[in-house]
Design a protein around this nucleic acid. Structure first.
Lengths: 159, 159
DNA sequence: CTCAAAATCAGTCTTTAGTATGAGCGAAAA
DNA sequence: TTTTCGCTCATACTAAAGACTGATTTTGAG
């Protein structure tokens, strides 16, 4: 029952158009009879249909065309201060989306360990640490581990 | 003569549509005769016209309507820092034996810059920065720049 | 002026970092 | 139950860092 409603919601435009078409076809049929019975000029009838469907097409296009998205970047300044007693900034940590393992790797990075050394310390392969470190860089939106360390320290994600 | 051309340019779409309509009316007239003569079903003819003009309407709307623009505001966060009480530890700095240029390079390293970026910032070649960075690592008795940064921060040589 | 240290640059080579892609597995969520 | 996600690992590749050698030019203290 739930899915049926969703389906209707998703295809609302299509359904609307189909129903409209059906109504129009009935209208056409009715008009046709009238015109034929009254022996009016066929051109008027055709012209009417043409105008009607042109309007319908315009309406459809305007309804369905997706708007262009114009992105405006606004810079927002955030002031942080580092205190001697380190308390982890949970909010900033969550914003990065780092997993616990990735945070662990980041911390060891900040201590100056190489990937190989981190791998040895955590008893995993070098490949694993490379994957983690790549994820860390990606999630922190930086290109080098030194940048990641700098940013993490400024955000109070690591001591 | 000049203004006439401009007028044409400005109303190009309208003119195009008008001409198209005229052509279509001729087509309709011709089709009409054919269909009537051949006694085809009128519904097919009407349907064709409807589809044609719906398409025309859609095309027209897309051509002539100015695009909808949705402005999306994206906030970009910039982190600024107040580190009120950083005082460089001169004694530790002297112990390392770092020259002023080497310290400069070390500071830029700590900000996450690559050697190439540091070279660009200081208007010297990559080779020079490599030499400096090697000297820094040697004088600080470490093997990686991340270690040098960590150590320098702990010794209060850099903020 | 002279000399040593600092700063500059180049070339070659090895190591480490980082990217891209794919895949297997297990736990938790939908 | 299927999907999703975190963790693991691998291969192949490119980019960057670092080591080593050797060189020229600047510069500042004696």
């Amino acid at each position: 029952m739930h899915t049926v409603l969703k389906w209707f919601a998703r295809h609302r435009s299509t359904i609307l158009y189909t129903v409209l078409l059906a109504i129009l076809l009935f209208l056409i049929r009715w008009l046709e009879l009238r015109f034929i019975v009254l022996n009016y000029a066929l051109e008027f009838y055709i012209g009417g249909v043409a105008i009607l469907f042109t309007a319908l097409g315009i309406w459809l296009a305007l309804k369905l065309s997706r708007p262009k998205i114009n992105t405006v970047v606004v810079e927002k300044e955030i002031y942080l201060h580092r205190s001697p007693e380190f308390t982890i900034n949970e909010k900033e940590l969550e914003k990065t989306g780092l997993s616990s393992r990735e945070l662990e790797v980041l911390q060891l990075m900040a201590e100056g360990l190489s990937n190989q050394e981190i791998a040895a310390k955590l008893f995993v392969s070098l490949s694993t640490i490379k994957t983690h470190s790549s994820k860390v860089l990606e999630k922190m939106d930086v290109r080098r581990r030194t940048q990641a360390i700098d940013k993490a320290k400024k955000l109070n994600i690591i001591p």
